[in-house]
């Protein structure tokens, strides 16, 4: 049985999983087969040992962004990589942004119209990460997966679909109408959301050296949701806009994540 499984993997020509110390990465797709001109989601499932984490695009004070780079694949076009909402880690006064437990970084892929039924598309990605608990250990490698091209997408789903669905709800959605202005020690970020309905909110800046990663972000209690963001101790110039992800925990305990880009005025 095991031999058969190994043989099957070998025949597919590649390995979907790379393992490192305290973290494994597995290439997954939300469908068992693809169709000419069809779209599907493909991603890398990261599983970390308890208490170990990997990092978001902006890793925070320490750490390193996780990286997924798709190899050029004939007959496939990849969309933008989707990053689920991060969370914060603290340790020794350094604040990190990232993921604990497991996460999936995924994208939408499009199959060429002229893909031949009965052929296969091959997906390959170079993955790298830094897994940290107290200590940090880098890992990575190339993961690959082949999917058959069929007339219609396979029925019965795939385990990959459940795994991608599990995180897709926490991928930030675009929120327009955010505004930002300078304050005494930093910035005030105002969102078109009702402050009273939010239990807590946190702004994850896309770039370092803009707002302090370690400081509290006091929020308004009434009116529009406004966060007071102390300036980064490493800021050397004013940014043109505050760009990042706001994660809001509602009074209903639901967590919602938004992409915001607020031009800085005054």
């Amino acid at each position: 049985m095991v031999a058969f499984f190994l043989l099957a993997v070998a025949l597919q020509g590649g390995t979907p999983t790379v393992s490192g110390a305290h973290c494994t990465a597995t290439l997954i797709a939300d469908t068992p087969s693809v169709t000419p001109g069809g779209k599907f989601r493909v991603g890398v499932l990261f599983k970390m040992d308890p208490h170990w984490h990997i990092y978001w695009t902006n890793p925070g004070d320490s750490g390193l962004a996780t990286s997924v780079k798709w190899a050029e694949a004939p007959g496939l076009a990849f969309g933008k990589l989707q990053w689920p909402a991060p969370r914060r880690f603290t340790g020794g006064g350094a604040v990190g942004y990232g993921y604990e437990g497991s996460t999936v970084l995924f994208t939408e892929a499009r199959v060429a119209e002229d893909a031949k039924i009965g052929s296969k598309v091959r997906i390959e990605a170079d993955v790298s990460w830094l897994a940290c608990e107290e200590a940090c250990i880098p890992g990575g490698g190339r993961v690959s997966l082949e999917l058959p091209v069929a007339k219609s997408p396979g029925v019965g789903g795939s385990p990959g679909r459940k795994q991608i669905d599990a995180v897709s709800g926490s991928v930030p959605t675009h929120l327009g109408g955010a505004t930002a202005r300078k304050s005494a020690n930093g910035y005030l970020l105002t969102l078109p959301l009702d402050a009273a309905t939010a239990k807590s909110a946190y702004f994850f800046p896309s770039d370092g050296e803009v707002v302090s990663h370690g400081a509290d972000q006091p929020k308004s209690r009434t009116g529009q949701l406004t966060l007071t963001l102390p300036k980064s101790e490493y800021a050397t110039r004013e940014p043109e806009a505050l760009v990042g992800v706001v994660v809001v925990t509602g009074q209903d305990t639901k967590v919602r994540a938004y992409h915001v880009s607020a031009e800085l005025t005054g």
Binding site: A85, R87, R88, F89, T90, V95, E100, G101, A166, G169, S170, K199, S200, Y202, G214, A215, D216, V247, T249, T253, K254, V255
Partner: peptide, 17 residues
């Protein structure tokens, strides 16, 4: 997962102080 995330975010905010 969402609830856990929310809880941990709040804990993190306290230690940061």
């Amino acid at each position: 997962t969402m609830l856990i995330l929310a809880g941990l975010t709040m804990v993190a905010a306290c230690t940061m102080n």
